[in-house]
């Protein structure tokens, strides 16, 4: 084999061209792989949503237009009725559950995450240990945390009920995960427990970029720390928090596993992902489930575009 210099020059390629050609071949396998596992299945899902495909007959579906989304049905009596996902109360219940869960969990996680980050940003003995401790919930698999908490929240023997009873905070045992009034609260508690560390770490990374002399100067000028936080710290860490919030929000909007295991089949917590999967694989409504997952995808896509556009969030880091 000749040396690479000669072969490249012989081919008459400039260095830049040679690099770009190599870049193409370096990227090709990754792009092909992503096309096969992401783009193609997504297109197929969207296609299924416009057909009457069923699970046992994946290739026999006929085009039905928007019927899975919304159609008008004429009853024998002559009355009209709306059918399809967009006229399905169960779907709108799932949308409402998901949106409520996403907003409440992300707001609380951002609040607690900032609080923990502020604590970790202070100098104190044992800081390393505290940081290690808050990483534990993050390291635990979601299914395991769901099981751990459903044991702790168990109505008969759960430790949470025992502690609350002994403290006199409740009068009788609560069926946290089974009762419709508390199921959403249970899901929120577990999700906040599990993902606040992630928020805290991202906020902490933002906080550590703030130069220390700013605090010194503010202290010398006698400005109250709370004022410093709102006027100086918060604006400076806003970009880091904005990125963290969008990732959390997307995660929250597509939540599946925690809800599925902690509160099985509860109408108070059933989210868009859970109801779509039930229709796809459990209720034998394949095309209908495909329509619901397409709607979820559309909602997320619109949400992300709006967020990036309105918030001018720089996600690629190319701007710096």
């Amino acid at each position: 084999m000749t040396s690479p210099t000669h072969s490249a020059r012989d081919a008459g390629l400039s260095l830049q061209q040679q690099r770009q050609r190599a870049a193409f071949w370096f990227l090709a396998p990754m792009v092909v792989a992503l096309f096969c596992v992401a783009a193609w299945p997504l297109l197929r899902t969207i296609w299924f949503s416009f057909t009457d495909t069923s699970m046992d007959n994946l290739y026999g579906g006929k085009w039905v237009g928007f019927d899975n989304y919304l159609r008008v049905q004429e009853l024998p009596s002559g009355a009209w009725r709306f059918k399809g996902t967009l006229a399905d109360p169960a779907w709108w219940n799932a949308v409402w559950n998901t949106v409520r869960f996403a907003f409440v969990s992300v707001i609380l996680e951002t609040f607690f995450g900032l609080m923990v980050a502020l604590v970790l940003n202070a100098e104190f003995k044992g800081r390393g240990w505290v940081r290690a401790a808050i990483l534990i919930p993050w390291a635990i698999p979601t299914i395991v945390s769901a099981k751990m908490w459903s044991w702790m929240l168990n109505d008969q023997y759960g430790i949470i009920n025992v502690i609350l009873l002994n403290l006199g905070l409740i009068e009788k045992k609560i069926a946290w995960t089974a009762s419709l009034d508390t199921a959403m609260a249970a899901v929120l508690i577990v999700d906040i427990w599990k993902t606040t560390p992630f928020m805290a770490l991202l906020c902490l990374a933002g906080l550590q970029m703030v130069p220390r002399d700013i605090y010194e100067a503010a202290k010398l000028d006698g400005i109250h720390p709370v004022r410093v936080f709102f006027k100086v710290t918060l604006p400076l860490i806003r970009p880091a928090v904005a990125v963290a919030v969008i990732f959390r929000m997307l995660d929250a909007l597509r939540i599946f596993d925690l809800v599925y295991v902690l509160t099985p089949d509860s109408s108070a917590t059933k989210t868009m992902s859970v109801i779509s999967r039930q229709n796809l694989f459990e209720y034998n409504n394949f095309a209908y489930g495909a329509a619901q997952s397409t709607l979820l995808f559309a909602i997320l896509a619109i949400f992300v575009s709006l967020y990036i556009w309105l918030g001018r969030v720089d996600l690629t880091g190319e701007a710096k």
Partner: peptide
């Protein structure tokens, strides 16, 4: 830049949106 944004976009995919299509592919 566009390619980077696409890759980031894929990482944000709701997995349920590809579930039906992946099921078909895998079967």
């Amino acid at each position: 830049g566009l390619l980077l944004m696409t890759i980031l976009g894929v990482s944000m995919f709701p997995q349920i949106a590809v579930l039906a299509g992946l099921f078909e592919l895998i079967r």
